[in-house]
């Protein structure tokens, strides 16, 4: 850690925060571990254990965490490296409150929140979201088995990275936050799906459903914009005509 301290301005709150998080996460747990690679405080590698009782049971998954220079004001990006059948590998995914816009990331969340949320989010339906994969349970189970022998060129044999230490227990409040977090591929942040997708899930926790009220609003907005453009066009046309008439009168 000493060299990192030398390289960055530790007076900068964002740097101080990341150094604290690195310290907090320094000790591996049985569920997750994460640490900055070499001396770059803004790129981390992480390892998570597949949630027990799911298709990912027994799997161990490795990936990168990219921290924006504005962290913790802006969310970290996560990139899975180990094939898992739920998320595309080598693709940036980002977390936000499900059904909400990506700017709902909260600075009081942390890398631990992101990792816990990722574990909790793995068994949820992919529903065609960008960055998501909809592999069959059998394929996912096969990948889980294979994952334990996966190695990272930076960190080595990933199966050795987790420990048998229990992670800090998840608090009641944390749990309610984790239930709300969704992960999405990068592209989808910039544009919302144009049509409201039908929601198949009757459950209250539909993690990827589209907020229909927003799409209805969008449509209304579209109509208003179209009307306005029309009005402007008519206005210009009439002005032009008026000028033309003045010209002829002169």
């Amino acid at each position: 850690m000493a060299d990192i301290g030398d390289k960055y301005n530790t007076k900068c709150p964002g740097v101080k925060r990341l150094m604290r998080e690195a310290l907090e996460l320094a000790e591996a747990t049985e569920e997750y571990c994460a640490r900055p690679i070499e001396d770059n405080l803004f790129e981390w590698h992480f390892t998570v254990r597949g949630p027990p009782g799911t298709d990912f049971d027994g799997g161990i998954y490795h990936g990168r965490i990219l921290l924006p220079k504005e962290y913790p004001m802006h969310p970290p990006h996560i990139i899975l490296l180990t094939p898992n059948g739920r998320f595309e590998v080598n693709k940036k995914i980002c977390l936000s409150i499900s059904g909400y816009h990506p700017e709902t990331w909260q600075p009081s969340w942390s890398i631990r929140t992101a990792l816990l949320a990722l574990i909790a989010f793995m068994p949820t339906p992919a529903e065609g979201t960008i960055g998501s994969l909809d592999y069959t349970p059998a394929e996912r189970k096969a990948l889980a088995k294979k994952s334990v022998s996966w190695t990272c060129s930076e960190c080595g044999d990933i199966a050795l990275l987790l420990s048998s230490n229990a992670a800090k227990p998840v608090t009641e409040e944390e749990k309610s936050v984790l239930d709300q977090i969704a992960f999405k591929g990068e592209e989808e942040q910039a544009t919302k799906p144009p049509e409201p997708e039908p929601t198949y899930e009757p459950e209250p926790q539909v993690l990827e459903s589209v907020d229909t009220s927003t799409t209805v609003l969008d449509q209304v907005l579209e109509i208003i914009v179209a009307l306005l453009l029309g009005a402007i066009a008519i206005f210009i046309y009439r002005r032009w005509n008026a000028y033309a008439q003045v010209d002829t009168e002169l």
Binding site: C94, H101, E186, E187, Q189, P194, E195, E222
Partner: peptide, 21 residues
Amino acid sequence: DASSSSACTGNLVDNSINQDE
């Protein structure tokens, strides 16, 4: 959020993403 400025490559292929957006 400034992150919304992240590139949205590939959108142009999709006609359903309209001009207004």
